[in-house]
Nucleic acid binder design. Structure first.
Lengths: 251, 251
DNA sequence: CTTTATTGTAATAATTTGAGACAATAGTAT
DNA sequence: ATACTATTGTCTCAAATTATTACAATAAAG
C-alpha cells in the first residue's frame, strides 16, 4: 500500500490533529493522573479502589488530562467524579515515570472486558507517566461511583489491599509515606473528619496515620495549644461517663 | 491537495511513528523536566541558570524525556550534561501543569535565536507539563556547560535571580520551599559540601538554607549527637587559632 | 446515691535546647 | 621564648518543652 513518505509541515499538522482526535480524544498523550483517596471510618484508614469489568484487575482511580485543562483541574475532576464531593483536600505528591510501569497487556484486558475497540484506543496501550495525588475526605459523606471502565469501587483498609495493577501498590505506599510526613506539619487531619468531632476522634486519626499510640493528655494539650480548634457544644453519647466536647477547626 | 481522511489503524501507527520522528525526535510529547541545581560557595546558595542565544531569556536547565528512558534517568542525564558530575543527589519535587505556564512566543524566540527551523520544531511550541527536580552538588567540583540552545550557564545567588522565562521563578521558589522542608529531616546537607568539611562549613550550609543564625554550641552538640559524622584529621588553615577537625559523613 | 468509665486540666518529673563559661590551640606579634 | 588573638571543642547551668501522673468533674447505669 502506498503511503506518503514525505509530507510538508502543513500536512503534518493536519495529520497530527487528525490522529490526536482519533487516538487521544483531546487528551494529552502519555500522561495520566492517579489518585489515592483516603477516608477514615473511625477505626481504620481506607482508600478507594476500582475493579475493572470482567478482568479481576484492581486499580487506583485515575484518568487523563484534557488538552485545555490544567493538571490540577484534571485530578480534581477525577476525584469529584468518583466521590461526588466538591472542595476536596487534594495534594500532588509524585510523578511516576519508570520504563516498566506501563502494562499494555493489562490495558488490553480492560479494553476487552469493556468491549471497547482495541484499535480506536491504541493510545491507551502506550507508555504513561502518572502524576499522583492524594485526597483526604470525610468517609461518611461519600457514595463512591465507579468510572466508565469499572464495575465496582470500594473502600479497602490500607493494610488489606488487593494486588493492584501496574505500579499502583507502589503509588499507595509512596502516598502513605508522604501523608505521614506531611500530616503534623500541615495540620490536615480535619479533612478526614466531619466538621464537628471529639478530641478522641481526632486522636484516633493521628494514631492511625502516624501508626503509634499517643498519650491522651499530651495530645490534648498540644492540639489545644495550637489554637486551631473552636470548642462547640457537648456531645451526649448516652454513655455512662463524662460527655466530651465537640470541636471544629477555626477559619 | 487531497489527503486521506480515513486510514486503517496500521496506517495510523505508521503515520504516528513518522510524525513522532519528525516532530518529537523520539521524545515523549508535552512533557519536559526542569532542574533546580543548587550549589554552595561557602557564603551563598546559588543555582545554575541558562541564557539562550540572542534572546536575553533566562531559564532553568531542562529537557525532554526519551521514549525509552525513565523520567528519573532523563533528569539525571540533564544534570550530568550540565555539570559533568555523576552520582548526583537529585530529587523530584513537583510537576507543574497549569494551562498558562507554556509560552510559545518565548519558545519561538529561542528557536529563531538558534537559527532553528520553526516548522521542524513546532512540537516545542505546544503545551508542556514540567516535572521538576532539585539537585544538590558540590560547587567546587563543577564546570557548568551550556546546552545546545544556550549561550551561557552561570551560577546565580538565589536572592539575585534574573527574571526567568515561563514559570521558572515559581519553580525555583517551590524548590526552595521543599528543600527547606526536607533539609533537616533527610540530612542532605553533605551533598553541598566536599567529602571532608569543618563543623563551621556545615553550620554555614544550615544557616544559609534555613535562613537563620544557629548557635554554634547547640548546633555542634545536636549534629554530633546524631552520630552521623566521622571525625577526620585536623585542618591547619594557617590561621592564628585552634585548628578545626575535618568531618565526613558516615556510611 | 453509689459506681463506672471517660474527660478536662493541673501538677510534677524528665528531657531537650539555649546561653555562657572556659580550657586548648595555631599561628602572630613582641 | 613569651605573651597575645581568634577560634574550636566541651562542659555547666538555666530555660523551655515534653512526658507522666494525679485528680476533680461528669453522664449514665445499677
Amino acid at each position: 500500500m502506498p503511503f506518503c513518505l514525505y509530507f510538508d509541515s502543513n500536512m503534518v499538522d493536519r495529520a497530527k490533529k487528525k490522529i490526536d482526535n482519533i487516538e487521544h480524544k483531546g487528551f494529552i498523550p502519555n500522561v495520566s493522573y492517579d489518585s489515592v483517596i483516603f477516608g477514615f471510618n473511625g477505626k481504620q484508614l481506607k482508600i478507594l479502589i476500582l475493579e475493572y469489568y470482567n478482568t479481576g484487575l484492581f486499580a487506583l482511580p485515575g484518568g487523563f488530562v484534557k488538552r485545555n485543562e490544567s493538571l490540577d483541574a484534571a485530578a480534581e475532576r477525577g476525584v469529584r467524579e468518583r466521590t461526588g464531593l466538591d472542595q476536596i483536600y487534594l495534594e500532588q505528591f509524585y510523578t511516576f515515570g519508570s520504563l516498566t510501569r506501563s502494562d499494555p497487556q493489562a490495558m488490553e484486558r480492560i479494553l476487552e472486558g469493556n468491549g471497547m475497540d482495541r484499535q480506536a484506543h491504541q493510545w491507551m496501550l502506550d507508555r504513561f507517566l502518572s502524576v499522583s495525588y492524594y485526597a483526604l475526605i470525610n468517609y461518611d459523606e461519600v457514595t463512591p461511583k465507579p468510572d466508565e471502565l469499572s464495575d465496582n469501587i470500594n473502600w479497602y483498609p490500607i493494610d488489606e489491599l488487593p494486588p493492584l495493577m501496574m505500579d499502583h501498590n507502589q503509588i499507595v505506599n509512596k502516598a502513605l509515606e508522604v501523608l505521614r510526613d506531611n500530616f503534623e506539619k500541615k495540620l490536615i487531619g480535619m479533612n478526614l473528619l466531619p466538621s464537628k468531632f471529639t478530641m478522641k476522634q481526632l486522636q484516633m486519626v493521628y494514631e492511625t496515620i502516624l501508626g503509634k499510640k499517643l498519650r491522651r493528655t499530651s495530645f490534648q494539650r498540644r492540639i489545644l495549644g495550637m489554637d486551631i480548634l473552636e470548642r462547640q457544644e457537648k456531645l451526649y453519647q448516652g454513655k455512662a461517663h463524662k460527655a466530651p466536647y465537640l470541636y471544629s477547626f477555626k477559619s
